[in-house]
Design a protein around this nucleic acid. Structure first.
Length: 562
RNA sequence: GCGCCCGUAGCUCAAUUGGAUAGAGCAACGGCCUUCUAAGCCGUAGGUUCCGCGUUCGAGUCGCGGCGGGCGUACCA
């Protein structure tokens, strides 16, 4: 790993958590505690006066050792060797917490490490290069993308970035439902409008697509191809028009994803599965394994054996494969393509579908935890404090593109990811558009722009940090606060990835921005004192690195000035 | 009916996976710019974490039972 090379000589090169863990383990051994039975959990207290790291082992041991937790804590403390550079002091507090206060030597060295690691700061190798895939959006290409797709696109894209940051080889995939009933309906809808342009009456399909975009496509086709389809047999015409319409819808989807900075490695077409009869192979496999049965002329899968509430149809009475069967086969291709771990992001209306898909993959013999579904909850758009009414049936939806165009990609991404994906999201369009302090996107970006300006100003004053920088000049409380905040970043990244909670990153970046703004307010970076200026400039640069690294994962820009 | 998600300050949300005195932003009120970006900072006020019981040293967090909101419960996709 080249990225740490310059720091191997450092005294505190090892993860601070590991060091403290060892120290405590040693102390426990001295006390004849069977350490294998306990996990030493180190946590960062949320309160400043509880130190930098805290351990609760004394409370866990209280009932076993039949001693007061504070007394146990005291004994542990007495068995810890002191190194005032690393650990400034150790305190017993509350019901029996042991609190560690780290020393300036540690903070200064850690700050240096951030500067050295630059864009790699925050990355870990937890994933061991394992191939992982997240499938998201996967919206029917029969209409424009809606805001739930936008939210899913944001979360999926950022989660892939997070997984890559923690050492996985993560890919983005979009499943294209380019066949079946929905596509036929699209063709029929377009055909009806198309015929109308040439004054022919053709019935509009009962469950057809009503949006304005359908008319537009019909008009475009008429402009480009003239009336050459009108004499064709209806079935043939419908198919040809469906084909053209589908290509156009997919082109539009790709255009939007491009604009939104989501780069799918693969757009996997459903037709690929059907053309190669993958679904029939899977059907045979399930039959061989004895998980199917015939009833009422249909073929069923015993998903109830794997926790689903009832069994599901694979082949209909008409011997047609269900969407489910094709979907199973599609998911099997993911395993065949080498993915060890995969996630799907689905909308709230599909959550009832989760148990059967998990059941199917288990029935095929894949590990239970290799596949998970994350449900992204609905989005309420607010305008002027009022919810915007949307009705798909009437063709009245707010499109993803409208939102992006209106609020901008940065703000959209930030807002869509800025809360737990399992919670409903109120998206306040007015707020996202505001270029004021009410808008958290500008708040975090402003910190970055401000830093760039300071660095520029320092350069003009001839202050450029070099190897001679003396970090011992950093002594102020606000400086320490800022370093401590910077040091949380790697944990935020791995925590957000592991718990599938990307909103932790936006929360953190807002805290970091606040901590920096506070530091900036109380202390001048560039002053008469050149040595001090250099030291503070180093701290400022480290902040810029962390902000920029975070923005990169979020897929938002890091403005040089605002 | 059954299943899944959600319920925290007036509003939008956090809370290190069970930790200590539940925190931010907005909205309200009061301060801070001849000095590196005031899109900033400091301060005041705001709470029965929907209700009840349980698990234990310790619960916003876990379990059970309610209440309220959303979604699902197809040989549709």
């Amino acid at each position: 790993m080249g990225r740490c090379r310059n720091y191997e000589s450092g005294r505190f090169m090892k993860n601070i958590q590991e060091i403290l863990g060892e120290i405590i383990t040693n102390a426990l051994q001295q006390l004849n505690v069977d350490i294998d039975k306990y996990k030493i959990i180190l946590e960062r207290p949320k309160q400043e006066n509880h130190g930098d790291w805290s351990v609760n082992i004394a409370m866990q041991l209280a009932s076993v050792l039949k001693k007061a937790p504070r007394q146990i804590a005291e004994e542990i403390k007495n068995n810890i060797p002191f190194d005032s550079g690393l650990i400034e002091k150790i305190e017993i507090a509350g019901p029996g917490f042991i609190n560690f206060y780290l020393g300036w030597d540690y903070f200064r060295e850690a700050l240096g490490a951030i500067i050295q690691q630059k864009q790699n700061y925050g990355q870990t190798d937890w994933g061991k290069n394992e191939k992982l895939q997240i499938e998201f959006v996967s919206a029917n290409p029969t209409g424009p993308l809606n805001v739930v797709s936008a939210r899913a696109a944001t979360i999926g894209d950022i989660m892939v970035n997070l997984y890559n940051a923690v050492g996985f080889k993560a890919d983005r995939e979009n499943y294209l439902n380019d066949c079946g009933r929905q596509v036929r309906l699209l063709g029929e809808s377009v055909s009806s409008h198309y015929m109308a342009i040439f004054n022919r009456n053709e019935e509009f399909p009962e469950e057809g697509y009503h949006g304005e975009y359908v008319k537009e496509i019909a008009r475009d086709i008429a402009d480009e191809h003239g009336n050459k389809f009108i004499e064709l047999e209806k079935k043939v015409r419908t198919q040809k028009l469906a084909d053209i319409a589908l290509k156009e819808m997919i082109r539009l989807q790709k255009e939007i994803m491009d604009l939104y900075r989501v780069n799918f490695q693969t757009w996997f077409p459903e037709s690929n599965v059907r053309d190669t009869n993958k679904h029939l192979e899977v059907l045979d496999l399930l039959k061989q394994r004895g998980y199917t049965f015939e009833q009422d002329g249909a073929t069923w899968f015993q998903s109830s054996k794997f926790g689903d509430e009832k069994d599901r149809v694979l082949l209909t009475q008409e011997n047609e494969p269900t969407y489910f069967l094709v979907d199973i086969a599609y998911h099997q291709t993911k395993y065949e393509r080498g993915y060890k771990k995969m996630f799907d992001i689905w909308g709230p209306d599909h959550h009832g579908y989760v148990p059967r898909m998990k059941a199917a993959l288990q029935a095929l013999g894949y590990p239970q935890d290799s596949f998970d579904v994350e449900i992204v909850q609905q989005v309420n758009l607010l305008r002027g404090g009022e919810a915007v009414k949307m009705s798909k049936r009437a063709g009245q939806i707010i499109e993803m593109k409208e939102v992006i165009d209106e609020v901008g990609v940065d703000a959209a991404r930030f807002f869509f990811v800025n809360r737990k994906s399992s919670s409903h999201l109120d998206f306040d369009i007015d707020l996202a558009k505001k270029e004021t302090d009410e808008n958290p996107v500008y708040y975090v970006q402003y910190a970055h722009a401000r830093i760039c300006n300071i660095i520029k100003f320092a350069g003009e004053q001839g202050i450029i940090p070099d190897d001679q920088v003396d970090l011992n000049l950093l002594v102020k409380d606000e400086e320490k606060q800022l370093i401590k905040k910077l040091l949380q970043y790697p944990d935020v990244i791995s925590g957000a990835a592991q718990s599938w909670e990307p909103h932790r990153l936006t929360t953190y970046l807002q805290e970091l921005a606040a901590t920096f703004h506070r530091f900036y307010h109380f202390h001048r970076v560039v002053s008469e004192d050149k040595s001090l200026s250099k030291a503070r400039l180093t701290l400022t640069k480290a902040t810029k690195i962390v902000l920029a690294n975070g923005f990169k994962i979020l897929g938002i820009s890091a403005p040089e000035n605002m």
